[in-house]
């Protein structure tokens, strides 16, 4: 079963970190990914640039609306994600609890929804 672990934290906290602390956190994440990979739990993942770089796209009545910033202004911002392979939710939660930023912010764990197989006719909306 595949789970996505979405990493959230307050960017303020990260910005206030010393260079050394930031460096250590990154190294810890790299080591964590190596461990997950060795154990066969790591499928994919990326760290994200800060939210100032985010752009939100919506399409309403055929019109594309583009706005600066993340979809919702929240206290914690999405900082990255992991795509994990885990036997069940307990294992996924246990893996997520070892993601270093879990100590600073929060990790949302969600099962991946498999899309149904593509149909031959092709959907016409």
């Amino acid at each position: 079963m595949k789970y996505v672990a979405l990493v959230y934290y307050q960017e303020q906290i990260i910005n206030a970190m010393s260079d050394q602390a930031w460096h250590d956190l990154n190294q810890e994440c790299i080591a964590g990914v190596e461990r997950l990979t060795t154990n066969g739990n790591y499928l994919a993942g990326q760290a994200l640039q800060p939210i100032e770089t985010a752009t939100t796209v919506r399409v309403r009545d055929g019109e594309t609306l583009i706005s600066d910033g993340p979809f919702a202004e929240t206290k914690e911002q999405l900082a990255g994600f992991y795509l994990l392979e885990a036997h069940d939710l307990n294992e996924a939660l246990q893996l997520a609890s070892r993601i270093p930023p879990a100590r600073l912010g929060s990790i949302e764990v969600r099962p991946v929804r498999e899309l149904p197989p593509k149909t031959d006719t092709g959907a016409s909306l």
């Binding site: 079963m1 069940d88 939710l89 099962p111």
Partner: peptide, 10 residues
């Protein structure tokens, strides 16, 4: 069912 909470004793 969907998040696969295991049916198990820890």
């Amino acid at each position: 069912r969907d998040a696969r909470i295991p049916y198990a004793v820890p």
